[in-house]
């Protein structure tokens, strides 16, 4: 096998200027189950798919409250998310303590971005292995940010991270206008669940056990719906299983639907969850520079 010499640490550039350790950290996000975030004028909804390690095990928490006006969804290494959410909570509390005002979502997000960047430029630390969606409502309105281990943060109208999240992004792009103009929070949540549903593989469907829903916005503190409380939202969906799987019973779940935007990558990811070891070096062909966020 081709041996990549440039991927042993996060302080070595490849000859094309890439940082493989950071890119591998981005891969770790895709190992996690999906999370979707979307915004209307005054609200942010975060929804996520929870996994349990075994039938009798509990489901891994995917949504974390930071403050009354901020919450996050995670995909990837949950322990890393705990570190970051703790940090965010401390920042939120200091803002209250020092300025007597809730922290601005943007500033909160930048604080973890700068923290994450440090781990990509110094030896001995590893980049964080988790992606976050941060939803917040403050004086400047409703905001949704995506945080990556590279230390990049970008503001989106709608975003999705985790396994097979491309399908959710496709849904969000197609329904963007409708989502942005959602009058009711209910419509926004339903759009969120629809997007999340598109990430499902064929053997599962959304249930009140594996689905988490949260909302924050104008006159609405951050609130998470789990278990029985989620049922009210699931009841509003026309179906709780993936449309692609409903339309066609073929075993091969991805190539039936002619959705060209669900890339081959997604199929690979599926395999990745079971077989691929993260140390496998991606090809060094140019053009897929994931850390370069403006390219």
């Amino acid at each position: 096998m081709f041996r990549n010499n440039y991927d042993n640490d996060s302080v070595t550039y490849s000859p094309t200027g890439r940082l493989f350790q950071v890119e591998y950290a981005l891969e770790a996000i895709k190992q996690g189950s999906a999370a979707v975030g979307l915004t209307s004028k005054n609200h942010v909804v975060l929804v996520a798919l929870k996994r349990n390690a075994e039938e009798l095990g509990s489901f891994q928490k995917k949504l974390i409250k930071i403050d009354d006006h901020i919450g996050i969804a995670l995909a990837g290494l949950a322990p890393d998310a705990r570190v970051l959410s703790n940090y965010l909570r401390r920042q939120a509390m200091s803002s209250k303590m020092i300025f007597d005002k809730p922290i601005q979502t943007y500033k909160a997000v930048l604080s973890i971005a700068d923290k994450a960047q440090e781990n990509t430029q110094t030896y001995g630390a590893r980049p964080y292995g988790v992606g976050l969606l941060i939803g917040g409502y403050d004086e400047t309105g409703a905001h949704l940010f995506e945080f990556q281990p590279s230390g990049s943060v970008l503001e989106y109208y709608g975003a999705a991270i985790g396994a097979r999240s491309q399908a959710a992004r496709t849904y969000l792009e197609r329904n963007l206008d409708e989502i942005r103009n959602s009058e009711s929070t209910e419509a926004l949540i339903v759009h969120g669940l629809n997007a999340l549903r598109d990430t499902l593989s064929q053997d599962i469907e959304l249930t009140n056990k594996n689905t988490s829903v949260s909302i924050v916005g104008k006159d609405q503190e951050f609130v998470v719906y789990d278990d029985e409380d989620v049922q009210q939202w699931l009841d509003k969906l026309d179906s709780v299983s993936n449309a692609r799987n409903r339309d066609d019973d073929d075993d091969n779940n991805n190539n039936n639907n002619n959705d060209e935007e669900v890339k081959d990558e997604e199929v690979k990811e599926e395999n990745a969850e079971t077989t691929e070891s993260a140390a496998d070096a991606p090809d060094t062909t140019e053009g897929d520079d994931r850390m370069e966020t403006d390219e």
């Binding site: 020092i98 005002k101 500033k107 400047t140």
Partner: peptide
Amino acid sequence: YDNDGGDYLRAANVHEYLSR
């Protein structure tokens, strides 16, 4: 720094900061 617009420093924030 990184002003996102709108959310600026008000008297209550200045006072709280000074009292700290």
